[in-house]
Write a protein that binds this DNA or RNA. Structure first.
Length: 480
RNA sequence: GACCCGUUCGUCUAACGGUUAGGACACCUGGUUUUCAUCCAGGCAAUAGGGGUUCGAUUCCCCUACGGGUCGCCA
């Protein structure tokens, strides 16, 4: 497969250097997380764009763990990131657990490779050891130009730019050594160097990453040049912000992918939503399965401005995905949430219950509470719901009427017979049917809202419906 | 502070010089469902400001404002 360059932002002459290198090369993208926390939703989006681009072009998606900072890396974090990616369905072709011909895929295990590239730099006279023992890459005298697929072209003189450094405490620029540290005195390597070396060594063709790396890119380009390697295509994607426009940090609500797992989101919906943050299919469609995303994704559809996270839209999208699941998939996805609430998976009533609740649930987490009245022997009456009906003058008559009618039903216990009994009771009491529905619902489910009432009553069962009506009647009588 | 990127309804976005500036979420109003939800119909709501260029700018250029990013021996 070949690379599609669908949105030229630059005159062709400027693009040429950029694209001839990879025009006929199979696409290889990578996601390179640092295991210092959970899988952040923004990182997940970066991973998604890399994954989608690779899959769209039939290329290779590489997972590389950038664990060069021994002080901050944790095993728990690495596991969380890997399992988060797995949950999202972003399978990697090369990387941890699956291997590949360009391994190892943990930077902590690649020192020999870095030594080799460093030797190359040394041989070319492009780096030196400073007085502290750290190795520095000589910043080029000439300006460096990069062409970003999304952000366009920019030229910068690194030597001049790096000759001073902003001191946040002093609030002013202070003189600095413009040459980039690439290896610490203790022999460990710095991000910029290993990142570039690995991208070269792993033959990465497209570097798709957050815009926070845009300003680093000229340095990387200089390293590519010094190492005699062609530049990959750079595509810096805009960042996600909180709903209020502030920077999304680790502790913000919805920042971690585990939040979505725990709250009963579907991975397909999360992928769909985050894909839409900064990428557009350019038409009015917006509900996509992962397969459809792969088919439609193109880097040319990525826009350049940051976006804010809209949790409500994400919820809506999740509901849409939920309704598109077939019965087996729904049961499978809901299983952990059902087990958590002790709802037996082999209960005869479960399939029908799931079909009932799926029309209204937006998350898997909302499923058990909605169908609990079917499976639990005891229900709790929501006080707020009860308050809506307890003040009605005729409430006891209504409940008693329903009870009498339901207990006398001769036509069996099904939706039609239940409806007929409610209608009959309403006529007897000279009320509209609607006036009986809410009391009936609250008495039998404890809640003011929920799935379609008739089928719900069928599943709860005649005897328990009668018992619950009696219980509420007793309760109301004793409190009045 | 310097440098870089950005700025269309509240939010996500479409419109790559000519549109009554389109769609979606959210919100509001009706309707259907004799319940809840779905669903259907309708409504509210945007080109940051100022200069150019042009017969004509959301679209191209400049300035300002605002937002974000980078300026580490973190990644």
């Amino acid at each position: 497969m070949h690379i599609a360059v669908a949105r030229p932002r630059l005159p062709l002459a400027q693009q040429r250097h950029h694209f001839t290198i990879t025009m006929s090369t199979p696409v290889r993208t990578r996601f390179a997380p640092s295991p210092t926390g959970h899988l952040h939703i923004g990182s997940a989006r970066t991973a998604l764009f890399n994954w989608l681009h690779a899959r769209h072009h039939g290329g290779t998606f590489v997972l590389r763990v950038e664990d060069t900072d021994a002080a901050r890396n944790t095993e728990a974090s690495r596991d969380a990131i890997l399992s988060g990616l797995e949950w999202l369905g972003m399978n990697w072709d090369e990387g941890p657990n699956v291997g590949g011909e360009y391994g190892p895929y943990f930077q902590s295990e690649r020192n020999e490779i870095y030594d080799r590239y460093l030797a190359q730099l040394e041989a070319a006279g492009r780096c030196y050891k400073d007085e502290s023992g750290a190795t520095r890459f000589r910043m080029p005298d000439e300006p460096v130009t990069i062409n970003d697929l999304i952000c366009g072209s920019q030229t910068i003189n690194l030597k001049e730019q790096s000759a001073t450094r902003w001191d946040a405490k002093l609030k002013k620029d202070v003189p600095a050594n413009p040459d980039l540290v690439i290896r610490r005195a203790d022999g460990s390597y710095i991000f910029h160097f290993v990142n570039v070396v690995d991208d070269i060594d792993m033959k990465i063709t497209h570097v798709i990453r957050g815009e926070d790396h845009l300003s680093n890119t000229p340095k990387h380009a200089a390293l590519f040049e010094a190492l005699g390697a062609p530049l990959p295509v750079f595509a810096h994607i805009p960042l996600n912000l909180n709903a209020d426009g502030s920077k999304m940090s680790k502790r913000d609500q919805g920042a971690s992918i585990t939040d979505y797992i725990e709250q009963g989101f579907l991975s397909s919906a999360v992928c769909n939503y985050i894909a839409l943050l900064g990428w557009s299919p350019k038409d009015d469609e917006e509900i996509f399965s992962p397969e459809e995303l792969v088919k439609r994704f193109d880097l040319s559809g990525i826009n350049r401005s940051n976006s804010r996270f809209d949790f409500k839209k994400c919820l809506w999208l999740n509901g849409e995905h939920l309704r598109r699941l077939d019965a087996d998939e729904l049961l499978k996805k809901a299983t952990p949430f059902l087990q958590d609430k002790n709802i037996a998976l082999d209960d005869d009533r479960l399939p029908a219950a799931l079909q009932l609740i799926r029309q209204r649930a937006e998350t898997l987490e909302q499923i058990p509470p909605g169908i609990a009245p079917i499976f639990e022997d005891q229900i709790e009456i929501d006080p707020d719901a009860l308050a809506k009906i307890s003040g009605r003058e005729n409430i006891i008559d209504v409940l008693q009427g329903l009870h009498d009618s339901f207990s006398a039903t001769a036509a069996g216990w099904n939706e039609d017979s239940i409806k007929a009994e409610i209608v009959a009771t309403a006529e007897k009491l000279e009320l509209k049917m609607g006036a009986l529905m809410l009391p009936c619902r609250i008495a039998t489910t404890g809640k003011a809202g929920g799935p379609d009432l008739m089928p719900l009553l069928v599943l709860i069962g005649q005897q328990r419906v009668l018992d619950r009506l009696t219980t509420l009647i007793t309760k109301l009588n004793s409190s009045s």
